[in-house]
Structures are given as C-alpha cells and as structure tokens.
C-alpha cells in the first residue's frame, strides 16, 4: 500500500507540474467578464485544428476564408499538424499583421477586452508526451473561473483557469493576435509591432507593411524605425519623393543612423539627384561604428552613384533638398 502511494504521487507529478513553480499567473485583480460572442467558429476536421483556428482569427480581422482553403497553406501531412511559423506566415500572406503577445495572461485578457480574439498554442499532454493543440481564446469568465475557447469541435468550450494556464505554459505561452494594419493591439509594444511590420516588409507584403508603418508612425512619432520602414515601403512602391521625406524624418530622430543614410542616398539617386546622394553616402561612411553589412551597402550605393550617368543635376545640395 505505501508503495502505491509513492507511485500515485509520482504519477501525479509526472502528469501535472513536475518541477514547475506554483501558479503566479492570476488573471486580473478584479474579476473580469468578457466574451467575444461574434467570433465565428470552424469545427476542426481530423488533425486540422491549425487551419480551423487560423480561419477563426483571420475572419475576425476581416479576411474571408475557411479551414478548407487554409489547409493546403499550413497543414503538414507528415507531422499531422501545423507549425507556429507557418500560421504566422499565412497571416502575412493574407495581408494581416501577426502580433505575438508577451507571455503574460494579463496581456492576453487585455486583448480580449479590446475586442481581439487570441490564437494560442496549448500542450494538452505533458512535456514528455506532448499533444499540441491550437485554440482561439474568445473570453474569460471570472465568475466561472474559466476561459472561453473556440476549440476543436467545441464552439464554446469552458476551460478551468488553472488547467488552461498549465496547458498554455507547457506551450511556452505562445499567443498571437491577427490585426488589420490600421489597428494596434491593446497596449502595444513598439518593438514587437515594428518587428512584425519589418517581417511583412521582408516577406514582400509591401503595401500591408506600409500601412502598418503609417499606423506606427502616428502612434510612436519618435520611433526611428517607423519612419525608416515607411521610407522603405515607399521606395519599394516607386514613390521616391515620399521615401526621401520619410528617411529624412528618420535621420532627424537618429542622425547617426548609417542605414538611413544609405537608403536616403538611394531615394535621392532614384530621383536623379546624383550629387546630393553622393554627399549623403559620404556622410554615412564618415559615421563611427558602422556594422560591416551596412558599410558594404553604403559602398555599393557609392559605386552605383559613380556608375550613374550625370544628366543635368536638378537637385540642391544633399542636406537641404526639398
């Protein structure tokens, strides 16, 4: 009999929270009642909770799609599931901004209160035998002490708070909000937001990235990266004058930004302002502590300026054009 008790204790530890700190993630000092009842529901087919949950959050961000359409985009037959990175990539391809939340239950609840359903990864098993599952959190009931989920084949699943927190913690608190580029998440973190916008830019979603940078530059006008990114997306759309203005704004905030010198020079060159571009590149190369990559980019721009045929300079000096 004593042996049974030992084994029972061992089994419970194994199944529950072996070696993990006690729960400190208490939602809200005051009881919260929030439920986004209008969030649609797509019951999952077979192993396809990824496409179903993704469809739910994309719909809420104004994208018309369904799990059937998304399955070939995110489902990995050989893994019987979907990877987080592929869900994020699919959000970008649908011209929305994937904003990953900080790993904090308070942050998650604030998104709900602001009207954003939250896509989460859960581990329904244990660390050694993981059962990965995507669900969409649409509410929290302080009275019932439960989270409200669109999950699997259940339209309105009530999950006990502590159980939800355990399954979510075992998936490293991964949570994602899907946003139209005009909207910010609740209590947005500028670094997270701008990083997400930069990822839209680097994956070629230029127009969506530009709209996100506009949103960012309005909300955080003191952030260099917002203006810099705006400049890049204007440049890539062939709007060189607008690009130039945005880069100048970035340089006003951060005069020692070598990358902004390079890109401003490119925008000037694209407008035929060879001399002005040359001066900006010179100034950029004269800065201290340039990373090798940026120096390389500046040198390439310099070479390009030299190659560029001078055709009737119609621009003023580098620092004061426009």
């Amino acid at each position: 009999m004593p042996q049974l008790h030992v084994r029972l204790a061992a089994a419970l530890l194994l199944a529950g929270c072996a070696g993990q700190p006690p729960l400190t993630e208490r939602p809200g000092p005051t009881p919260v009642e929030v439920e986004l009842a209008a969030v649609p529901f797509h019951p999952q087919q077979a192993y396809q909770c990824g496409p179903a949950a993704l469809a739910t959050v994309l719909n809420s961000a104004g994208v018309e799609t369904g799990p059937g359409e998304l399955t070939p985009e995110v489902y990995l037959p050989g893994r019987h599931g979907s990877l987080q990175a592929e869900l994020v990539a699919a959000v970008r391809r649908h011209e929305r901004l994937p904003y990953q939340l900080e790993p904090d239950i308070e942050a998650l609840i604030r998104q709900l209160q602001a009207g954003h359903p939250v896509l989460v990864l859960q581990n329904l098993g244990i660390a050694a035998l993981p059962r990965w599952h995507y669900a969409v959190v649409i509410g929290y009931s302080g009275e019932r002490d439960s989270f409200i989920l669109r999950s699997g084949t259940e339209r309105r699943k009530l999950m006990d708070r502590d159980l939800f927190l355990r399954t979510w913690r075992r998936a490293d608190h991964w949570a994602l909000v899907v946003l139209p580029p005009e909207r910010l998440p609740a209590e947005p973190d500028p670094d997270r937001y701008l990083r997400a916008a930069a990822d839209l830019e680097s994956t070629g979603r230029i127009d969506t990235a530009r709209r996100a940078y506009v949103t960012a530059s309005r909300h955080w006008p003191q952030r260099t990266a917002a203006w810099y990114g705006l400049g890049n997306t204007h440049y890539l759309a062939g709007e060189y004058e607008a690009a130039e203005a945005a880069y100048r704004q970035a340089l006003e905030l951060d005069p020692d930004n070598a990358a902004a010198h390079n890109n401003l020079a490119r925008a000037l060159l694209a407008q035929g302002c060879r001399d002005a571009a040359g001066q900006i590149v010179e100034a950029g190369l004269g800065l201290r502590d340039i990373t090798p990559g940026i120096r390389q980019a500046l040198k390439a721009t310099q070479d390009e300026i030299v190659r560029h045929q001078s055709g009737g300079e119609k621009c003023g000096p580098g620092t004061n054009t426009h």
């Binding site: 396809q48 019987h80 599931g81 990877l83 059962r131 599952h133």
Partner: peptide, 8 residues
Amino acid sequence: LPAGAGVI
C-alpha cells in the same frame, strides 16, 4: 517543433 494537431 510543435505541430498543433488537436484534441482528436
């Protein structure tokens, strides 16, 4: 990497 599959 985690591949979310679901409750089924």
